[in-house]
Design a protein around this nucleic acid. Structure first.
Lengths: 198, 198
DNA sequence: CGCATTGTGTACCGAATGGTAGATATATTA
DNA sequence: TAATATATCTACCATTCGGTACACAATGCG
């Protein structure tokens, strides 16, 4: 234990309280007031722990990636059959985006959609952009592996397919936030998978 | 000409100046200050002409639908071949979302993504929701016509397909706003159309 | 105990938000 | 010309924004 007065809240636990607010409202939309209230602490305590709103968001984004997005990727890579892996990835995405225990849709898509504003720091914008590129890349690498495994024909345009599946997930986030039902979105996934002939 | 002092700007022309600001920043993100500056007029003049920010946005949304979205629908219904119509609809959507003469992506998707905030009036939220439902319905009706024309097999799930294509356009809006190139997005459209066997 | 160190909340900062009061300018009507 | 009606802009309103100064509370160390 260090010198001075001990902190009355766990900064890691605080991220779990802060995350849903950013998830629902994006970077701009979430006020520091509301973020502090979600943690159950005053504004200066949040600033003392994280520095500023930008750093707090970046920490929450990391938490989002490790606590939610990572699970999707893990599944994508553990399922041996390429097509089944992508299909289950899309279905898991739908399940995540429509889970009632947290806001609908994708934090990254939600935050990125409003990141053109001057009120959004460049570091936040670039982190969101990097996360989206990373998601497309993960899909692309899985498709390339499927190609090596003979689950995908040799002359398939793997890059185009990856961008396509990533675009579908982006659209699913929009639909989830607009209130489209999980059942409907699962049907959308079935349609999306038809582009990949078995 | 009525009594009093004549207005020094055309409210219809003003909508064309206001629209790109809402398109880029959404409802919350666009400040009345900036909207007035875009028109080249002071805030009270805008308020005198439209009432408040909410009414101004709804007017801009109508303009967006008639000046941009309507063209897409018209093409969708004029092309006789069902599959070609949908394909061209998606390609036209990409062209619209990546047109450099106005903000990237879709006004409706951009504004709807941040409409959870309490700062967004319920009327705006419901208008955006209605526009999205309308878009899906337009596609669904076109697919039903294609089915009657024998361009789509009888047992196809037209509703699911409509939601699917609408989800793709939502995703294309997100991608366009994130900076994905037009060429890449046209490849995505090709992939998306593969789900509809010719 | 006294001292240094650190976390805490209250109460504030300047700036920006949506919206408006009120004075003034420009038109038609009588 | 006088009266009426509407548009215009400056200057302001209360509120909220991200961020902080400061007094005080709670710890470890001597």
């Amino acid at each position: 234990m260090g010198r001075g007065r001990p902190r009355e809240f766990d900064p890691e636990m605080a991220l779990d309280r802060v995350l849903p607010v950013f998830w629902r409202d994006g970077f701009e939309g979430a006020s520091v007031q509301e973020l502090a209230a979600a943690v159950g602490v005053s504004k200066p305590s949040l600033y003392a722990a994280y520095g500023n709103k930008e750093a707090l968001f970046l920490a929450a984004l990391e938490r989002y990636l490790s606590a939610f997005a990572a699970g999707l990727v893990e599944q994508l890579e553990s399922e041996p059959d390429g097509r089944a892996a992508v299909r289950q990835y899309l279905r898991d995405t739908v399940a995540l985006y429509t889970d009632r225990s947290h806001p609908f849709g994708c934090l990254i898509v939600t935050a990125a959609t409003t990141s053109d504003s001057a009120a959004v720091p460049a570091a936040v914008r670039s982190a969101l952009c990097a996360s989206m590129r990373k998601a497309a890349t993960v899909i692309e690498e899985r498709l390339r592996r499927a190609q090596r495994d003979g689950h995908l024909r040799e002359n398939a345009d793997v890059s185009a397919m990856a961008h396509y599946f990533h675009t579908v997930t982006s659209g699913l986030s929009v639909q989830a936030k607009a209130g489209t039902s999980r059942e409907t979105m699962l049907l959308v996934v079935d349609e999306a998978m038809k582009s990949w002939a078995a």
